[in-house]
Each structure stands twice: as structure tokens, then as C-alpha cells.
Amino acid sequence: ESFERTINIAKGNSSLGMTVSANKDGLGMIVRSIIHGGAISRDGRIAIGDCILSINEESTISVTNAQARAMLRRHSLIGPDIKITYVP
């Protein structure tokens, strides 16, 4: 059984350190890789294959690959914290 989780990740000045791609069925974006030493890796809660539904409350539903990457990059630049809703 999968259910949504919303977490805050304190990334400070470091990068999030993950790559994503659009989910084929349009439901959010899938975590493709996690870079060791990045904020996601240090936090430890998000794993490869998890589905991200929103970043800082901006929905990732029906985004393209390019939009998913641009959204991740944009939110990575805002502030020291990032809020991610995902399904493990």
C-alpha cells in the first residue's frame, strides 16, 4: 500500500542531488538517481523509484521530462529548504 508523504529537506547551500524523469502515466515524476553527498542522499528518506507528486506545493502531475528537470532546478535555487510530497 502506497501513500503520500510530505517532507521538508534542509539543503542549505548544497544541491538536492537527484535526477528525475516524467512518469509515463502522468502521475508526477520518478526519482532516477540520487547523488551521494547531496541533500536527498543525506536526508535518506527519498529513494530511487519513488514518485514525486509536488515540490514546494507545485504539482508535478502531467509534466514532461524537460519540465520535470526545469522544475527541480528552479526549486533547488529557492531558499535553504525544500518541501517534497512523494509516494515511496
Rank of each mutant, 00 (worst) to 15 (best):
E1L: 09
E1C: 05
E1T: 08
S2N: 15
F3W: 09
F3V: 11
E4Q: 14
R5Q: 13
R5I: 10
R5S: 06
R5Y: 09
T6A: 06
T6V: 09
T6W: 02
T6Y: 00
I7E: 02
I7L: 05
I7Q: 00
I7W: 00
N8Y: 13
I9D: 00
I9A: 01
A10E: 13
A10Y: 14
A10D: 11
K11C: 12
K11R: 13
G12L: 07
G12H: 09
G12K: 12
G12Y: 08
G12W: 06
N13R: 10
S14E: 13
S15W: 09
S15M: 11
S15P: 14
L16R: 01
L16A: 01
L16H: 02
G17T: 03
G17P: 01
G17W: 03
M18F: 08
M18K: 00
M18I: 12
T19L: 09
V20I: 11
V20A: 08
S21R: 10
A22P: 14
A22D: 07
A22G: 09
N23S: 13
N23L: 03
N23M: 06
K24W: 05
D25N: 15
G26M: 04
G26V: 04
L27C: 13
L27Y: 14
G28T: 02
G28P: 04
G28R: 02
G28S: 03
G28Q: 01
G28L: 01
M29K: 00
M29Y: 03
I30T: 12
I30P: 00
V31S: 00
V31E: 01
V31R: 01
V31D: 01
R32K: 14
R32H: 08
R32P: 01
S33N: 14
S33D: 14
S33A: 08
I34S: 01
I34C: 02
I35E: 14
I35G: 11
I35N: 11
I35W: 08
I35K: 15
H36W: 09
G37R: 05
G37F: 05
G38E: 12
G38D: 07
A39M: 05
A39E: 04
A39L: 06
A39H: 05
A39C: 10
I40F: 00
I40W: 02
S41L: 04
S41D: 14
R42W: 02
R42S: 08
D43I: 01
D43A: 00
D43P: 01
G44W: 01
G44R: 06
G44F: 01
R45E: 00
R45K: 03
R45V: 02
R45L: 01
R45Y: 02
R45S: 04
I46H: 02
A47P: 00
A47M: 10
I48M: 07
I48Q: 10
I48D: 05
I48V: 15
I48Y: 02
G49C: 00
G49Q: 01
G49M: 03
G49L: 00
D50M: 00
D50W: 00
C51R: 15
C51A: 11
C51E: 13
I52Q: 01
L53M: 12
L53H: 10
L53P: 02
S54M: 13
S54V: 04
S54C: 09
I55Q: 00
I55C: 04
N56S: 03
N56Q: 05
N56E: 05
E57R: 07
E57S: 12
E57Q: 11
E58Q: 09
E58V: 06
E58I: 06
E58R: 05
S59K: 11
S59L: 06
S59I: 05
S59R: 08
T60C: 15
T60S: 08
T60M: 14
I61K: 15
I61Y: 09
I61Q: 15
S62N: 15
S62C: 13
S62G: 14
V63A: 10
V63K: 13
V63S: 07
T64L: 03
T64S: 12
T64H: 02
T64D: 11
T64N: 10
N65P: 10
N65C: 09
N65G: 10
N65L: 06
A66S: 13
A66T: 11
A66R: 13
A66W: 08
A66H: 11
Q67L: 05
Q67C: 07
Q67M: 07
Q67W: 05
A68E: 02
R69C: 11
R69H: 12
A70T: 09
A70H: 12
M71I: 15
M71P: 00
M71C: 10
M71L: 12
M71D: 03
M71F: 10
L72P: 03
L72F: 06
L72H: 04
R73G: 08
R73K: 13
R73T: 14
R73H: 12
R74N: 08
R74V: 06
H75L: 12
H75D: 07
H75I: 14
H75V: 13
S76E: 15
S76K: 06
S76I: 06
L77M: 15
L77Q: 15
G79A: 09
P80A: 13
P80G: 15
P80Y: 07
P80F: 06
D81N: 15
D81V: 08
I82Q: 02
K83A: 08
K83Q: 09
K83W: 07
K83Y: 05
K83R: 12
I84H: 00
I84L: 09
I84N: 00
I84Y: 01
T85D: 04
Y86E: 02
Y86H: 04
Y86W: 04
P88C: 08
P88T: 08
